[in-house]
Design a protein around this nucleic acid. Structure first.
Length: 287
DNA sequence: CGATACACCTGTGTGC
DNA sequence: TGCACACAGGTGTATC
């Protein structure tokens, strides 16, 4: 599920069930995901109020009343499901009626308001950690992250600075979270197509004007995707059970063989492999 | 330093 | 139906 728009969609979906609410009990059903869970996880979560839910790059950050922040990453296959339908006449209250726990539900949060929130991750590339809120910025997973693409620090000028003399293909550089934080394979392909840049172009050989265009297209595609509730590949649902629909707006991702959607372009979308990952682009209009 | 390959893991789709 | 294989939204680590 998880590039920036999907993670932001999950964060928003969690808000009604989790923000301002107390975790009655955390059910930890395995030792860890990509890394072992922090020591005493269940005890450190039990009784904590989730004061607010934030997002940094592809991480969801839950600030707890205990002075710690829970850091959550969904990896490739992570998703979150909320159960306990909101009670119609009691805002913020959930029915205590839940479907059975599913395979790969690794951590289940039982909220005091009746909601049940399950972290499901088949491939277990995801992560969950706890860190003192005041030390959050120096957390190893966050410390080296580049600017938020939707924040003020991200611009064509920032790209120009970061890409100077870099010889790697622009595709790989945009996936580097130290340069800009939150893009993944889908939105890099989409942004490069919109900016008419070939994914193999060396980063250091793209002009300033084109980088401005690229920065702008990155922001636009992310904003459009967030507005659509993210992309749902296969039948993955967002936290609130709804399906994001941005996948219908892909111009190139997973569309090899289809005609290029750029107005006036007669090219056909191609798939190549870069760094072991698929890139989709139009050989006619992306230079 | 920068560039690339590989590792981690399960599920799904395809072709035989 | 079974089997082998390619591929999947990420990213830390090892290696040159």
């Amino acid at each position: 599920m998880p590039e920036l728009p999907e993670v932001e969609t999950v964060r928003r979906g969690l808000e009604p069930a989790m923000a301002g609410q107390r975790i009655a009990r955390a059910e930890v059903r395995r030792e860890g995901l990509r890394w072992p869970f922090p020591a005493g996880l269940a005890d450190r979560l039990a009784g904590a109020v989730v004061e607010r839910l934030r997002r940094r790059s592809k991480y969801i950050l839950a600030d707890l009343s205990t002075g710690e922040t829970m850091l959550l990453h969904l990896g490739m296959s992570g998703r979150i499901t909320i159960s306990g339908m909101a009670a119609p006449h009691v805002p913020g209250r959930f029915h205590h009626h839940h479907p059975p726990v599913e395979k790969h539900d690794h951590v289940v949060f039982h909220m005091e308001n009746g909601a049940r929130i399950a972290l499901n991750d088949a491939r277990r590339f995801g992560a969950l950690d706890l860190v003192a809120t005041e030390a959050l910025d120096s957390h190893p997973l966050l410390a080296a992250l580049g600017p938020e693409p939707l924040g003020n620090a991200f611009s064509g000028a920032h790209l120009a600075r970061s890409l100077q003399r870099r010889k790697s293909p622009i595709k790989a550089l945009l996936l580097d979270q130290r340069i800009v934080a939150g893009l993944g394979n889908i939105y890099v392909c989409e942004a490069l197509h919109r900016a008419l840049i070939h994914p193999r172009r060396a980063g250091g050989r793209i002009g300033a004007a084109r980088l401005e265009r690229l920065a702008s297209e990155v922001r636009l595609v992310l904003q459009e995707a967030i507005a659509a509730g993210g992309s749902s590949l296969r039948d993955y649902r967002q936290a609130d059970g709804e399906l994001g629909y941005f996948q219908h707006s892909f111009r190139v991702y997973d569309r090899a063989g289809h005609p290029c959607p750029t107005p006036g372009c007669t090219g056909k979308i191609r798939r190549i492999v870069q760094g072991g990952r698929s890139s989709f682009y139009c050989p006619a209009c992306q230079k």
